[in-house]
Amino acid sequence: MTTPRRFPVFATIIVLAAAMTMVGLGVWQLGRKTEKEALIARYEAAISNADPVAYPVTATEAEVAAVLYRRSAVDCKFTVGEWRSISGRSRDGRSGFVHIIACGTTTATTETDETAYVQAGWSRDPSPPKWKGGPVSGWIVPNSEGFARLVADPPVAGFEASAAPDPGDLPNNHLAYAGQWFFFALTALVIYVLALRRRRG
């Protein structure tokens, strides 16, 4: 007489807990999708606001986020370090390079030199012209490590205009991530059910 195999309670709890965790992560990604859509809508409203704000030379990441995609201006007293030339597009959609430089600038609230990052403009040539500084106005956009960058509009002398910043370009792939987590949860449950059937057989 064949002894019936015991139902694997512990393994079932582990699999169900894992599946519930994956579902929870999927739900969290759906929440992140809603948050990102609200953020993009806020930035789209900001970029249409013509009133300038102070460039955040000394600001926290949250303070930088509060002024992204607003108009601003800096007086680039002198350039600092080397130019960074990366692939980018012109205002009319041509491929080429945008050129970024750190500027020493004095704010209205301090008498010390602070650093402002300026995207001076676009060119086909990866080698930037020898611009030494001056007044720059444009849009504040995200830069690396929580800093801001000013996309010059109009471009500085020697450059053409870079493509205008578009908040819609911000990545919002949370729906895809949510779908992946839900799929992983379903796959884990299906595989476990098949394993249970084989075990009983």
Rank of each mutant, 00 (worst) to 15 (best):
T2Y: 07
T3S: 11
R5H: 12
P8Y: 04
V9S: 13
F10P: 05
T12N: 10
T12M: 01
I13D: 05
I13Q: 07
I14L: 15
I14Q: 12
I14V: 15
L16D: 08
L16Y: 08
M20Y: 10
T21M: 12
T21I: 07
M22A: 06
V23P: 09
V27S: 10
W28L: 02
W28C: 03
R32T: 00
K33H: 15
E35S: 07
K36A: 13
L39W: 08
L39F: 11
L39P: 05
I40T: 12
A41G: 09
A41M: 08
Y43N: 04
E44Y: 01
A45Q: 13
A46N: 15
S48W: 01
A50M: 13
A50C: 01
D51T: 14
D51M: 11
P52I: 07
P52Y: 10
A54T: 14
P56F: 04
V57M: 12
T58I: 15
V64W: 00
A65G: 08
A66P: 09
Y69S: 05
A73N: 07
V74P: 06
C76R: 01
T79A: 10
E82D: 14
W83Q: 08
R84S: 14
I86D: 15
S87V: 06
G88T: 00
G88R: 01
R89M: 13
R89S: 13
S90M: 08
R91N: 13
D92C: 04
R94T: 09
R94A: 15
H99E: 06
A102Q: 14
G104T: 00
G104S: 03
T105W: 00
T106G: 07
T106C: 02
T112H: 14
T115D: 03
A116D: 04
Q119T: 06
Q119N: 14
A120R: 01
G121H: 03
G121R: 02
W122P: 05
R124D: 14
D125E: 11
D125I: 04
D125R: 11
S127V: 15
P129Q: 05
P129N: 05
P129R: 01
K132T: 14
G133C: 09
G133Q: 05
P135V: 02
P135R: 05
V136C: 12
W139R: 11
W139N: 07
N143S: 15
E145L: 04
A148R: 01
R149E: 15
L150G: 10
V151H: 09
V151N: 08
D153W: 07
P154Q: 05
V156F: 07
F159H: 00
A161K: 08
S162Q: 03
A163R: 13
P165L: 02
D166S: 11
D166Y: 03
D166P: 08
G168N: 12
G168A: 15
N172K: 02
N172G: 02
N172I: 04
N173A: 12
L175P: 06
A176D: 11
A176Q: 12
A176T: 13
A178R: 02
G179A: 03
A188D: 04
L189I: 01
A195M: 12
L196A: 02
R197K: 10
R199C: 03
G201T: 14
